[in-house]
Amino acid sequence: MKAREITLIAILSASLTAGKFVLSAVPNIEIITFLFIVYTVIFGLKRAFFTSIIFTTTEILIYGFGTWLLGYYILWPMLILITHLLKRTINSEYGFAIVAAIFGFAFGLFFALFESLFYGIEYAIPYWLSGIPFDIVHGVSNFIIVLVLYTPLTKTIFVAKQKMHIV
Rank of each mutant, 00 (worst) to 15 (best):
M1L: 08
E5P: 02
I6R: 11
I6Y: 05
T7H: 04
L8S: 01
I9L: 08
I11H: 08
L12I: 06
A14Q: 07
A14R: 04
A14M: 09
K20T: 14
V22N: 09
V22C: 07
L23Y: 04
L23E: 08
S24Q: 14
A25E: 11
P27I: 13
N28W: 03
N28R: 10
T33C: 14
F34W: 06
F36G: 09
F36H: 01
V38R: 07
Y39I: 10
T40M: 05
V41F: 12
V41H: 06
I42D: 02
I42C: 07
L45A: 04
L45H: 09
R47H: 09
R47C: 05
R47K: 14
A48R: 02
F49P: 00
F49D: 03
F49T: 12
F50R: 00
T51G: 08
I53M: 14
F55I: 04
F55H: 00
T57L: 12
E59H: 10
I60N: 01
I62S: 11
Y63E: 07
G66P: 09
W68A: 07
L69M: 15
L70N: 04
G71M: 05
Y72T: 00
Y72L: 10
Y73G: 08
W76S: 01
P77Q: 11
M78A: 15
L81N: 03
I82N: 00
I82W: 02
H84T: 02
H84Y: 15
L85G: 00
L86S: 13
R88H: 13
T89A: 12
I90L: 15
I90K: 03
N91H: 14
N91Y: 11
S92G: 11
S92N: 14
Y94C: 01
F96I: 05
A100I: 02
A101W: 03
I102Y: 10
I102V: 14
F107A: 10
F110W: 08
L113Q: 09
L113M: 13
F114I: 00
E115F: 13
E115T: 06
E115K: 01
F118V: 08
Y119W: 13
Y123L: 01
A124W: 04
A124V: 08
A124E: 03
I125C: 07
I125P: 00
I125S: 02
I125Q: 02
P126I: 10
P126E: 14
L129D: 07
G131V: 06
I132L: 12
F134V: 03
F134A: 15
D135F: 03
H138K: 05
H138M: 05
F143E: 06
I145W: 00
I145L: 10
L147K: 12
L149P: 08
Y150S: 02
L153R: 03
L153M: 13
L153V: 15
T154D: 03
T154H: 03
K155Y: 06
I157V: 12
V159R: 15
A160F: 13
H165N: 14
V167Y: 10
V167M: 13
